[in-house]
Amino acid sequence: MKTFVYNGQPARVIFGSGTISTLPEEVERMGLQRVLVLATPPQEADAFRLAKSIGERAAGVYAKATMHTPVSVTEDAMRVVAELNVDGLVAVGGGSTTGLAKAIALRTDLPQIVAPTTYAGSEMTPILGETKDGAKITQTSPKVLPEVVIYDVELTMTLPAAMSGTSGMNAIAHAVEALYARESNPVVSLMAKEAIGALADSLPVIALRPQDPEARWKALYGAWLCGICLGSVGMALHHKLCHTLGGTFDLPHAETHTIVLPHALAYNAPAIPTVIDNLRAVLKADPAMALYDLAGQIGAKRALSDIGMPQSGIDIATDRALANPYWNPRALEREPIRELIARAYAGEPPQA
């Protein structure tokens, strides 16, 4: 008989197809008068279209969001927020744009409306990871939880198949770790298993048919649930490793999660037999190998060496991953952790 605590995160979610059309009324409903629309440089045109739809309540566009949320970019955005007398934020894009909105909200407590275009899931969490001087620092605060999230399947239809795959694998990582988190509970576990199944089914379809609307709907649905999982419980070894690798070597976020996930799960497998059984029911095979195979099926890279990590980084990452103690279901041991990172570097199959 298990004792557990469940904390639900407050957020208004609008989910469907064409739902971005509700943005102007959401801005009005929240009483916002000077909204800044955020985006990455490639999505600047999308940001301007949303600003136009908002009309006179749009104060401007800031399209310089960057991967890993560098503090320097946030400080530049803060200057614009002050100059334009902004009273609310609209973020359109993936984790980079959502991260910038959260970083601004942390410093200003401005309300956020987020319209995700990827499967990152961070829009459903009170978690912010910022990078400064080559180190990524993660913190949790209710200030950074977006007030409104508008999920529009149509916004994901143009997401390239390769990016869709790694973004979806990143989302799966949130749900996998939620199953064995110290704060795991029946509600989150139900969502996690549903989410993993939805993404494992839909990502291979998207790899073959990127315009398949049902697969896109299912993937976005799974990503939403994964985001709730990430925001409701703590994470462990997998996320610690990915933050270490991403912050230290400036590796692409989703690709790093895709590569590390099977290895981190294999490492923890001996300590979480019940979770492994639950995952088998969803993935229909040895879970760690199933995730490794899924990455191959969607055409994702499976070696850290292929996304920019130097071989010398194996020992650096090992040291940093062990530098600050954190909870994990299996005790953190230096040599097995180094072997995990080495196998992920080489792209070898996971091994417990």
Rank of each mutant, 00 (worst) to 15 (best):
T3D: 14
G8M: 12
I14K: 04
G18F: 07
I20E: 15
I20N: 14
T22S: 13
L23Q: 07
V37E: 12
P42F: 14
E44C: 03
A45I: 08
A47F: 04
A47H: 10
F48T: 14
L50K: 06
S53H: 11
G55R: 05
A58R: 02
A63T: 03
K64G: 02
H68R: 13
H68D: 15
T69D: 15
T69V: 15
S72G: 05
A77I: 07
R79P: 00
A82P: 01
G88R: 04
L89V: 06
V90Y: 00
A91H: 02
G93W: 10
T98E: 11
L106H: 14
D109N: 15
D109S: 15
Q112P: 01
I113W: 11
V114S: 03
G121M: 09
G121A: 05
G121V: 03
S122K: 09
E123I: 05
L128T: 10
T131H: 10
K132G: 14
G134D: 06
I137A: 13
T138W: 04
T138A: 08
Q139G: 14
Q139Y: 14
K143A: 15
L145A: 02
E154P: 00
M163F: 14
S164C: 13
S164G: 11
G165C: 07
S167E: 13
A171E: 12
A171S: 13
I172V: 15
V176W: 06
E183L: 02
N185D: 07
S189Y: 00
L190Y: 09
M191T: 03
A192W: 07
L203K: 02
L203S: 03
I206R: 06
A207V: 07
A207W: 00
R209T: 15
R209M: 09
E214D: 13
K218V: 10
L220P: 01
L220H: 08
L225H: 00
C226Q: 05
G227W: 02
C229H: 01
L230K: 09
L230N: 06
G234T: 07
M235H: 14
A236E: 15
L237F: 12
C242E: 15
H243F: 13
G246S: 10
T248H: 03
T248A: 10
E255W: 05
E255H: 13
T256E: 14
T256S: 11
I259Q: 00
L261G: 01
L261A: 06
L261V: 12
A264Q: 07
P270V: 04
P273T: 01
D277F: 00
N278L: 05
A281R: 10
D286V: 01
P287C: 05
M289S: 11
D293L: 03
G296W: 02
I298V: 14
A300M: 08
K301A: 11
K301D: 12
R302P: 02
A303M: 04
A303F: 10
L304D: 05
G308L: 12
Q311V: 05
G313H: 03
D315K: 02
I316S: 03
I316A: 07
I316F: 00
A317G: 04
T318W: 09
L322C: 11
A323Q: 12
P325A: 14
Y326A: 03
N328H: 01
L332N: 14
E335N: 06
R338L: 11
R343A: 09
A344Q: 09
Y345G: 06
E348G: 00
A352H: 13
